[in-house]
Design a protein around this nucleic acid. Structure first.
Length: 452
RNA sequence: GCGUCGGUGCCCGAGCGGCCUAAGGGAGCGGCCUGCAAAGCCGUACAAUCGCGGGUUCAAAUCCCGCCCGGCGCUCCA
């Protein structure tokens, strides 16, 4: 499988630490609010990657963290007058629950930052020992960017470049040796949650938690580190510096998924333009939302407008109509089409090309529908098997047809009326069901129905 | 400002030197099927053209140069 590696800035063949096993660390959210669609898009990217790799025969370990200590959490809990712990517990629960509703499988591990403070302290101690970090008494411990060759390489820049473009922004922090140096440990301020450390009470700094958690669970030199593009710098670059300067081999590959925009702007809590996952799930349903997201490549910016969603809802309807029709005709799955499977695999192997992969599925659906029209049962069976299999790889499995004896009995009454050519009576039943939100589709094999 | 990614039909969105007379989805139109619908199928218009202008090449949406426009990043954001 080829993926675009941010660090190498090109497409590379996945080069695994251990053949047959893929270890992935995907940066999760800071839980101070409900998840929005952007979080969902990123989580979906790594969920699909995992599903696809597993389907391809790999063993996959996916770790996705929850960051439950940072400045925003502290200020939000102060605003709401509840403890940091209560705040993060609440939002962690909501995050997990809504991702499940969205149809994203739980990662294999979901570590929380606050459970890893002692590991973080250990890494910081080692960094100080290696002279890659220094303490400023009363302020905290800082990473010394000068001690790490190639700082900035993840985003294709040099420390010099960064210093230059940082000048305008950074309020040159008094005692830091270099304006690029960043906090590893922050000395306690009144009223903040704190942990004991060799440098006095304080709390973790720049995303050292991800280093501690990824190395602890996945080990040195794990395969893929991912997250949203907004994390590439400084978040991920700082992690890389921390890990490698402390003597650990870090991620072999870096992946970044693109932002989800609203009216041309990044969806973000800070911009106040976000749409929550919960609301979107209610409005569009999980499968439509997933289809919409997967119809855009994970590395391209996508707009999620009502028009986009209308398109995706139509797509899901097409998929479901296909299954209803096959079921109604009594078609059973047979073996899957090798040709279509190969095209699907080729699309996915090319940097996880889900839009192309979905194109292959829709073409199979068209082929299956045509086959059924032509009473070519063998081909219809192959199409049904293929569509079922490939959709499951993308987590877009069909919803099971529900059963309802009341509807069935009304349907048979209508069929009797229709045989008698009493269309007035037949249409009355159809309207009745329509009012109940049930739509009838007549097929040569009898009527089928669906809930609207 | 610096860096980076991108600008493809009515909308979304693939394609990234010849297979492009530009995939796939949605919306439109015509036909078939149907008692009528729905679903499906077939056909079809929308891209004589892929932001604009140059260039390279036998050949460019695809490569190069310039310009315009937009996203993201440049200290705690997925």
């Amino acid at each position: 499988m080829h993926l675009f590696d941010t660090m190498q800035n090109r497409f590379v063949e996945l080069d695994l630490r251990e053949s047959g096993h893929v270890s992935i660390y995907a940066c999760g959210p800071t839980v101070y609010d409900v998840p929005h669609l952007g979080h969902a898009r990123t989580a979906l990217t790594y969920d699909i990657l995992k599903r696809y790799l597993q389907w391809s025969g790999y063993t996959v370990t996916l770790v996705s963290n929850i960051t439950d200590i940072d400045d925003k959490i502290i200020s939000r809990s102060a605003e709401e007058g509840i403890s940091e712990h209560d705040l993060t517990t609440t939002y962690t629960k909501i995050y997990i629950q809504q991702l499940r509703e969205f149809g994203i499988a739980d990662p294999d591990h979901r570590p929380q930052a606050t459970e890893y403070v002692s590991e973080m302290i250990e890494i910081i101690s080692r960094l100080i020992h290696q002279e890659a970090a220094y303490e400023i008494v009363g302020s905290g411990v800082y990473f010394s960017v000068n001690a790490f060759d190639g700082y900035g390489a993840l985003v294709g820049r040099t420390a010099g470049d960064l210093r230059e473009s940082a000048q305008a922004r950074i309020t040159s922090d008094e005692e830091k040796e270099d304006p690029l140096d960043f906090a590893l440990w922050k000395a306690a301020k009144p009223g903040e949650p704190t942990w004991e450390s060799p440098w006095g009470p304080g709390r973790p700094g720049w995303h050292i938690e991800c280093v501690a958690m990824s190395l602890d669970i996945l080990g040195d030199g794990f395969d893929i580190h991912g997250g949203g593009t907004d994390l590439a710098f400084p978040h991920h670059e700082n992690e890389r510096a921390e890990a490698e300067a402390s003597g650990h081999a870090f991620a072999r590959h870096w992946m970044h998924s693109a932002m989800l925009n609203v009216n041309g702007e990044k969806m973000a809590k800070s911009l106040g333009n976000f749409r929550t996952l919960g609301d979107a799930l209610k409005e569009y349903g999980s499968r439509s939302l997933k289809l919409a997201m997967l119809q855009a490549h994970y590395r391209s910016i996508m707009e999620l407008s009502d028009e986009t969603m209308a398109g995706a809802i139509g797509g899901i309807e097409r998929i479901d109509a296909f299954f209803r029709r096959m079921r109604g005709a009594g078609i059973e799955k047979s073996s899957i089409s090798e040709g279509m499977k190969q095209r699907f695999v080729a699309a996915m192997n090319t940097d996880m090309g889900t839009p192309d992969a979905i194109g292959v599925i829709f073409e199979t659906i068209s082929g299956g529908n045509s086959a059924l029209d032509g009473e070519n049962i063998d081909d219809a069976e192959v199409a049904l098997a293929t569509v079922t299999e490939l959709l499951s790889v993308l987590g877009l499995d069909q919803i099971d047809q529900d059963t309802d004896s009341d509807i069935d009995s009304l349907l048979s009454k209508r069929e009797i009326a229709r045989t008698k050519r009493d269309f007035a009576a037949a249409d009355k039943i159809r309207n009745l069901l329509q009012d109940k939100g049930v739509e009838i589709e007549d097929t040569p094999d009898g009527p089928i129905w669906r809930r609207l």
